[in-house]
Design a protein around this nucleic acid. Structure first.
Lengths: 345, 345
DNA sequence: GCGGCGAATGTTAACGTCAACATCGGCATG
DNA sequence: CATGCCGATGTTGACGTTAACATTCGCCGC
């Protein structure tokens, strides 16, 4: 009941089998050049025969590196996060690092610092933080000294490197698109409070309207789920003045579309809708959704590249990387009902 | 350029600071009882003062365990996989294990064995394999001896423990539901070839129809994406005989719904649609999608529980766990159009 | 008052790997 | 033929932790 301990063969086993010293085995394993071809082959054979696998714990202990990157994240299965994680993982592997996951349930201070200490014990050379709804900027999060950190999509901080989607540019793209179609103003279903992304999008939506001298309608805040988009949408779209809505993500846009269908308001003939994310499904919503594409892949790979550079150099220079977005125009947006079809100013 | 090596303080630093031996520090860190309260406090203070963090590499080396579980997976960001990964991660943390991710791009033999050897070097005590489209059953995959493995949702194998969703029961639920509504037969948009889940669903759909003595229409195979559901759906639904379709997942069902909208065929009045997965968005498709709910959470937690037990006991007894599904009835299914009402569009 | 027991604490060695240094033998050079 | 160098290989010790064993000391029972 208590076992499970049979350690695998080690270098000395291989060395004995091949009739060489442990150091020579080490050299073969690490691909050093100064080993005679015949000897190398003998070692290789011995390795195969005894089923040798290098022990990463010993290796990590020896050279003080784990070749692993920790990812602290909440809401692992949310669309954006899982895409980002996929990109991070791929990039890490390309750099020869593996990924250690540290999930955080509620992003409270306690949970996060707890995750940090666990992470620290759990053998990583650097950390990527991927937590939205980050209430921690004020009460300084305690980081193990000298552990490189990259923060993705969160409030600007001065103390470590950040990689962000250009939320402001994306939201402006969405809002401007609707205004250019001729809508008087644009309504907004926002993401949750305390989410950096949600707040940045809302801020940019608001300032874009102001810049164009438009009325800024009251904001309805959801929580990223389609469900919340549906309830907010149901409220919003009883108002026949509403002709254009910018939802802070595609899932809420989906809920909004459903609410519009239920109320019998045609999209895009009566109401135009824009989302944010460009998830794979958005092209197949009914109608297909105009949205803002963000490059999760680029974000992930830039984050890892930066982190790996910091790990290798020991350099803690704080930088900030911004990844641009793009408008994807589909069938959910059109000029408002009043205008003639041809008013695309 | 070459630095980054400053190792943190170790036990001996703490010991010196607290005026005790390293062993006493170890005892405090591990919460042994046989340390005097005053001494313990002194050590705790010293730990804080020097900023001590346990070194997991040394610990792993010492006791031959990493307290980490590897997850080999493809398509990390696909809906089901990310949900399962989330559940696995949560369960692992609850058991005191962390998760190391090993992504696999194309699930070819080479890629997977490569991932395995990397994984093995990368410090794990057990492995969860989460790869659909598993072409590897025949050419035996080479596993490091004695590394416990749990395989999720793949072809039955005799050599390690498996955890599967009850695909057959789910597909039968979907098919029976449509038959009971009065449809003559049920069409099927299947998942990709070589996917265990896709094949199991198709097989059960087919046998359910046969059992009820119904005609088995030709199968259209997609690739899980909404896009493929859309193209297959466009083909399928030109045929006015089609009144009920079972799509092998929700995303393909979404594409199908879009095709039906584009062809002007009403759902569910003219055509009923059932999906599989119950992703969060499905309740907000238009119309809301009847689907089969699978419990990713249960699958993940059972997989981890089994794996952890195997790790602890050293016991390699092969078991097989089946997780049931449930029908979620929403608005996309209804009785077929009456015979009197001829619908030709 | 003595033998001994148990709780608190210290000492030692080993886990597997690899850098640093040591050794050995061959070969070119003068 | 002595000198010295170079490439291949071996030996040693240290990385940080902890199990196992050793030591110390106060205290109990007879």
């Amino acid at each position: 009941m208590e076992r499970g301990q049979q350690r695998g063969p080690s270098m000395v086993d291989v060395a004995r089998e091949a009739g060489v010293s442990g150091q020579t085995v080490s050299r073969v394993v690490n691909g050093r050049s100064n080993v005679e071809a015949a000897t190398r082959q003998r070692v290789l054979d011995a390795m195969r025969r005894v089923g040798y696998r290098p022990n990463s714990a010993a290796r990590a202990l020896r050279n003080g590196q784990f070749r692993s990157i920790g990812v602290i994240m909440s809401a692992l299965s949310s669309f954006g996060n899982s895409r980002t994680l996929e990109a991070i993982t791929a990039a890490a592997v390309a750099h020869g690092y593996s990924i250690t996951l540290m999930p955080v349930g509620q992003p409270t201070q306690g949970e996060v610092t707890g995750a940090f200490s666990k992470l620290n014990e759990h053998a990583v050379d650097g950390v990527v933080i991927l937590i939205e709804q980050y209430e921690l900027e004020t009460s300084e999060i305690e980081l193990p000294d000298g552990l490189p950190v990259v923060v993705i999509d969160s409030n600007p901080r001065t103390d470590h490197t950040m990689v962000n989607i250009d939320q402001a540019q994306g939201a402006e793209l969405a809002t401007t698109h609707l205004l250019e179609l001729g809508h008087d103003t644009v309504w907004h279903i926002a993401g949750p409070r305390h989410s950096y992304a949600a707040e940045a999008r809302e801020r940019a939506w608001r300032s874009t309207l102001r810049r164009h001298g438009r009325r800024v309608p009251p904001v309805l805040a959801g929580d990223w789920t389609a469900e919340s988009g549906h309830t907010r949408g149901a409220t919003l779209c009883r108002d026949s003045e509403v002709t254009a809505v910018f939802a802070a993500n595609d899932q809420m846009a989906l809920g909004l579309l459903r609410a519009l269908h239920e109320l019998g308001r045609a999209v895009p003939a009566e109401v135009s809708v824009v989302g944010f994310d460009d998830m794979a499904e958005s092209a197949h919503f009914w109608p297909p959704l105009t949205t803002i594409r963000q490059s999760f892949a680029e974000m992930g790979s830039r984050a890892v590249a930066t982190l790996v550079a910091e790990i290798a150099s020991g350099d803690r220079t704080v930088t900030s990387i911004i990844v641009p977005t793009a408008l994807v125009h589909r069938a959910s947006t059109a000029p408002p009902p009043g205008r003639s079809r041809t008013t695309a100013r």
